[in-house]
Structures are given as structure tokens and as C-alpha cells.
Amino acid sequence: MTVSTIPAAPLIAEDLLLLLFDPRSGTIAGEGTLFYTLAGAVLTELVVEEHVTVDERPTLTGPRVTAVTSNPPADPLLHDVWEPLTTKRQGAQSLIAEVGPQLRGVLLDRLAERGHIHREEHKALGFIKTTALVDGGTSRRAELLDAVRPVLADGAEPTPRSGVLAALLSASGSLPVLDKDIPWSGAVYTRGKELEKGDWGAAAASEAVTRTMLAVTTASAAIAISSVQGG
């Protein structure tokens, strides 16, 4: 019997990466800025689960992030990001740039272990080893799309999870590339930007603090991504 080495509940960043994965082509949308996107998702989860607090006052490296020492995350990936913040708070943008580069591989490992994505080894020209990403055949990505698509395309009020994912997809800048799964339009663009700012509708009024913190973290990710795309 194989014993799983990862927590049962998927991280927001795992679900985000799975949404960005195109099972038709085996590619991931927004590869050029992916580490900013995934790090923004990790930071968002730390905020949403109240493992960290964010001081919204602007600094050169973004809003300051501080660990809530009484509430350590159980997930080992989140814990590795959280632990250094217990002794030194850090700007959100510098934190995103620091933790982002190693996330793609770690999160793909998790998706592979869960069976959502497979890695297939190939040889180009008979000797150059390459790795292709292949759809694992689970229903997880379709379920995520069913939750996120109406939030973006139809203006439906989100659940906390679908709202976070929709906002992060928008902040990633990859929604136009996902047109086959979430039809792209000016309305989808506008809705995504509203979600980034925490505008989730009256039903989410009780989530005001969470929405404010999400707005801070997605804005930090978007600023970082824009600076790379512009350069």
C-alpha cells in the first residue's frame, strides 16, 4: 500500500496550477511569470487561514507580512514559508520573489501524487531527455472550472475558495489564454479586476477582513508580474 506524503487537502496554489494547466497541450499558462503567480497563491493562503498578518501601509517591497506565531500552518510547504516570518517580517513583493522559484516543481509533484497530472519521459532526437505533462484523468480540474467559470463569466457570487482562485487567475494575467475553458471577454476582465480588489458581492460581507487581505496579496502578485512583463 502506498502512503501519501502530502496533506489530504490541496493548497490554493495546487488548485491554481491545475487550472493553469492545459490538458489538451500539456502546457501551463503564464510560464514566464508562474513563480510570481504561485507565490502569490501561497501568500494568499497564509493570509486567508490567518497564519500571517499584512500591514497595508506601503513600503518599497510591498505590504509587510508578519507571522502569527500562535497559529502555525500544518502543511509543510506553508510552514516553510511561514517559519522565517516568525523572527523577521518581510515585504510581500520580496517574499513572493524569494519563495516563488522553487514552487513549480514542488506543486507539480503534489499534483502528480494526487493523480491529476502525469509526467512522461521522452527522448528528442533519440537522446535528449524531455518531460511532458499529461492529464491524469481525474475530475478535479473540471470541478474547479465549474466553480470558477460562473464567478468570472456570469458574475455569480463566489464561495471563499472560488473567489480566491478567480482573483488569482485574474492577477496572473493568464485569463485570455484560458479562453477555451473560461470564454474571454471584456466583462470577464472587469469581473476579475473586481475580485482582485475584494468586490465579492453582498453575500460575502462577513468575509470583509479576508477580502481585504486577499486584495493586498493579489495586488502584490500583479505588481510583480507587471514589472516582469513590462521589462
Rank of each mutant, 00 (worst) to 15 (best):
M1V: 07
S4E: 10
T5H: 14
P7G: 11
A8S: 14
L11Y: 04
L11E: 05
L11A: 05
E14D: 15
D15S: 15
L16F: 05
L16H: 03
L17S: 08
L20V: 11
D22L: 06
P23Q: 09
R24E: 15
S25C: 10
S25F: 07
S25H: 14
A29T: 00
A29W: 03
T33H: 15
T33F: 11
Y36V: 00
T37H: 07
G40E: 06
A41N: 08
T44W: 00
V47E: 00
V47W: 02
E49G: 03
V54M: 11
D55K: 02
E56M: 08
E56L: 12
R57M: 15
R57N: 15
G62Y: 00
P63F: 02
R64Q: 14
V65M: 09
T66V: 13
A67Y: 02
T69V: 15
S70I: 07
S70P: 02
N71H: 12
P73V: 06
A74Y: 09
A74H: 14
L78W: 05
H79S: 14
H79T: 12
D80C: 10
D80N: 14
V81L: 10
L85Q: 03
T86E: 12
T87D: 11
T87Y: 11
T87M: 13
R89K: 13
G91Q: 02
Q93D: 04
L95R: 05
L95S: 03
I96R: 03
I96E: 01
P101R: 03
L103R: 01
R104S: 04
V106K: 09
L108S: 02
L111Q: 03
A112W: 05
A112L: 10
A112M: 12
E113V: 08
G115N: 02
H116A: 12
H118D: 11
E120Q: 09
E121N: 00
E121H: 04
A124P: 01
I128V: 15
V134L: 09
V134E: 07
D135Y: 08
D135L: 09
T138Q: 06
S139L: 13
R140C: 09
R140E: 10
R141T: 01
A142T: 13
A142Q: 13
E143T: 08
L144Q: 04
L144H: 01
A147Q: 11
A147S: 12
R149A: 07
V151L: 06
L152R: 02
A153L: 06
P160G: 05
R161C: 10
G163Y: 01
G163W: 05
V164R: 11
L165T: 00
A167Y: 04
A171M: 06
S172N: 05
P176D: 05
P176A: 08
D179K: 11
W184S: 04
S185M: 10
S185N: 08
Y189L: 13
R191L: 07
L195W: 00
E196V: 08
A203K: 15
S206H: 12
S206Y: 07
R211Q: 04
M213P: 04
A215R: 04
V216S: 07
T218A: 13
I225K: 01
S227L: 13
S227C: 08
V228E: 15
V228F: 13
Q229P: 05
Q229T: 13
G231K: 09
